[in-house]
Every structure is written in C-alpha cells, then in structure tokens.
Design a protein around this nucleic acid. Sequence first.
DNA 1: CACCATGGACACCCATGGGG
DNA 2: CCCCATGGGTGTCCATGGTG
Length: 286
Amino acid sequence: MIKIKPGILGNLYAYKMYARPTARRLYGEFSYRKKEIPKHHENIQRMLHVLAIHGPQTTWGMAKVELANDTSKIRAREKQYRKFLVGRDDRGRHSLGVLETGLVVIDGKNMLKTPANIYRLSIYGILYCLDVLDLTNKEIDMMAERYRNVIPGIFGRWEYLKKTIGRDVYRLRLLAKGLFLDNIQTTKIAKMPVYEILTYLSTKYLDNFEHIEESDLAEQISCWYYTQLLIPRDSHKKNSVVEYHQWYKLITKGDKDLKEMYQRFLDEVTEFYESRFKIVKKLKRL
DNA sequence: CACCATGGACACCCATGGGG
DNA sequence: CCCCATGGGTGTCCATGGTG
C-alpha cells in the first residue's frame, strides 16, 4: 500500500500521482456538504474546513470556532480533533492522523500559556480542500487570506489578481484536480507553448518527487498558475485578439514583482530549450 | 501563598457496525 | 461470525495566570 511519509511533501507530480489519490482514499472524494459520506470522512473534512477558513489554530481554537463558549463541549471536541490530527494508539495499534498523511502541519507554538502546537493546512491540505470540499469562491478568498504566507506568489496578491482577471483566479481548482500538469493535450488547446513550459517546470523539480521544501512547492505552484493563465478561457474561439489575454492584463496592470518573477522563469525556460536545441542542431550536422 | 480555571497532551475504555 | 476502525467518553498529568 502506498504510504505518504509523515509530514513530507513532494513536487506537483507527487501530488498528482500519490498524495491526491491517497487523500481521496482516506478522507473521501466528495464533499460532506454535497452528499452522504462515511462519518470519519465527514469529521476530517469538517476539521480541514475549519482550518481552511479560520487559518492556523490550536486545537482549542478550532473547537471554539463551532462551539461558542461551552467549555465542556469545546474540551471534548478539542480532544477529538487532536485524535484526528495525531492519529491514535488503541489496542496496540496505530492509525494515521492527518499530520502523518501530510495534509496538516505544525506551524509554530502558541505561547500564551503553556506551549501549544498551532496547526495549519499544508499545501497538500490546501489543494485537497480545493479539490474535494466544494468551497465557494468566498471561502477560497478567506483561505487565500489566511494562507497568504504559505503560497505568497498567488495568495499573497489574491486581491490584485481578483481585481485584474476576475473569476479566472479560481482556476487554482484545476491544479488541485491534477489537470494541466503533464497533459500533452495542452498542446492542442493553445497556440502558446504551455505544454513546453510546464514540461520544463516538471523537469526543474524532477528530483523533488519524494521531498520538497514547502516554499519550493509554492514556487512550483506559482509558476504553474501563471503559465496556465496563458490558456485562454474561450479557447474554442478562433479569432481571439490576444491569446494570452489574462496574462497580458496581469503584466500590464503593473505588478512589477510578478512581471519580474515570471520573466525570470521564462529565462530559465528559454535557456533550457535553447541548450537542448543546440545539441539537436549539432546532431543534424554530423 | 493556596487554589482554581484554563489550555493542552495522551492513555485507556467501551460500544457499534460494516466488511472480510 | 469475528475484527477492527471509528465514535464517544473518562482519567491523569502538566503548566500558567489570576484571585482571594
């Protein structure tokens, strides 16, 4: 059986091939808000939802969200949450918690009283929520605000993105569903070499299948995100004036940092293909 | 200071129901 | 039919901060 190493993230390919299927198997592939699902799936999803909407929390804080000020109930719920997080040892047997499957990570300590762990969604957790929880746009906005430090390249400029390209910001859902990643069909969709760029992106992080720093994964996701914006929404329309419409808007509306970031990335892409192309040319002349 | 409420971690117990 | 994961609950221990 495939097992995710405790708390360790991999690259986007690992997410697609490994983390996503595992999370869906363990915690469900449908939202508890849409249909009847196993109780355990629902419990875990509810907890992830609290973390998504309210951001990093102690277990006490998480329980408080739903149970106003009934201390005894909070206490019970908080214990339940901890079980879901750290797993449990019962009858000499250990069952996996969400921390161990990597959807949630410990993000510092609350020093108000005795040190207490603060939990938050990992990037995998964020993607799982986008994939399965059926979040409304409003909820995604809230999550973006809470997790702006985790994926600064996207969530850090969320309001700007929304203002500039509107509902296309929510295309992040596509990534969570594992689309447009290594899919050669992208070649057909756009005249833009989206497939080639994304292939370079996969190559760049190839060695990070089993392990990647969360900040690097955030980088990879950001590059994916701004690349897939090159695919026009109405790709079936033949005469779209500017094919890379949304992308163009972003760059010209004046987020200098974004422009520089993405152009640095395109430099890498160019460098990668030029050096390879040189070899091809050499071979031809043999 | 003693005492208590709060916040947190963890071990253990028991019932139950679905699946092998 | 039995197993075992899960739900629901209890007991213990620890640290801190406020209050009489």
